[in-house]
Design a protein around this nucleic acid. Sequence first.
DNA 1: TTTGATGCAAATTATTTGCATAAGA
DNA 2: TCTTATGCAAATAATTTGCATCAAA
Lengths: 152, 152
Amino acid sequence: MKWRKNLLEQVNSMEKVRPFSHALDRLRDAGLRPTRQRLALAKLLFDECDRHITAEQLHSEALAGNIRVSLATVYNTLHQFTTAGLLREIVVDAGRSYFDTNTTCHHHFFDESTGVLSDVPDGQLEVSGIPTPPEGAQVESVDVVVRIRAAS
Amino acid sequence: MKWRKNLLEQVNSMEKVRPFSHALDRLRDAGLRPTRQRLALAKLLFDECDRHITAEQLHSEALAGNIRVSLATVYNTLHQFTTAGLLREIVVDAGRSYFDTNTTCHHHFFDESTGVLSDVPDGQLEVSGIPTPPEGAQVESVDVVVRIRAAS
DNA sequence: TTTGATGCAAATTATTTGCATAAGA
DNA sequence: TCTTATGCAAATAATTTGCATCAAA
């Protein structure tokens, strides 16, 4: 049927009305099939710049935006995005994973009272003398977490 | 009954045979009642120096040493020790907590292939320019994790 | 013997997996 | 239509909590 275009065409025509090319391009470039859920989650993640979010938070946002998606799918999608290099997983809290839309090398503040994760502005913090790892291992990354707390 | 001494006396007499004063002193100083389980776990933790261990690992060691203790008690004890300042909790792996018997300020290697956590020797790694935290917050600590992996 | 801390079973929270199904070619 | 990848229910893993019990005084 004529009106039945493939998803790419649909999306291209929709882009004229509402610009979600950003999210779509990212999925395309990563070689991930742009399904409805993925596209919706990508939009939430990448339309604003520089987000730090947990699976639970993203799931809430999706539901609030009338996107029907299970928490498991949110987890799976976040991990797929991470594997594809679209996200970076940040470990700051035992028993909760945060995902960062900024995948470049940078460091974090973690507010232990509120659970809010934020970026340390570039150029403020320097790590020098990265140590020689034990025999036979290579350094993958050097992660710095500045733990903060509301002043008492 | 005469033979029924209190725990302190028992322990003092046993010390002549087997030296676990180290573990006992630590509990005493921290104001924690030296119960059988706590004393046994403290012995495992503090008799060797500088251990990095998960709850699961410590539980296994306890069972191997014929110490009947539940995993929940191991968790509770690890947290009590941490609150008392005897241990430091290290967050390196989403969904698993490590505890470090070295509570002084230092940094870590985390081997992502094996899950082994180890200390970065003092003096090799320097962090400079600790950034100003967001308004109203104060810095609690600056944690550096050097993630390593077996060379491919 | 009394009392309050303790230790564990059961509950909770966070995350992963297997497989029926829907989506794209 | 025909796969193959997808999304979710159910399972698993990690950790916490409430309360009966035990140990110290």
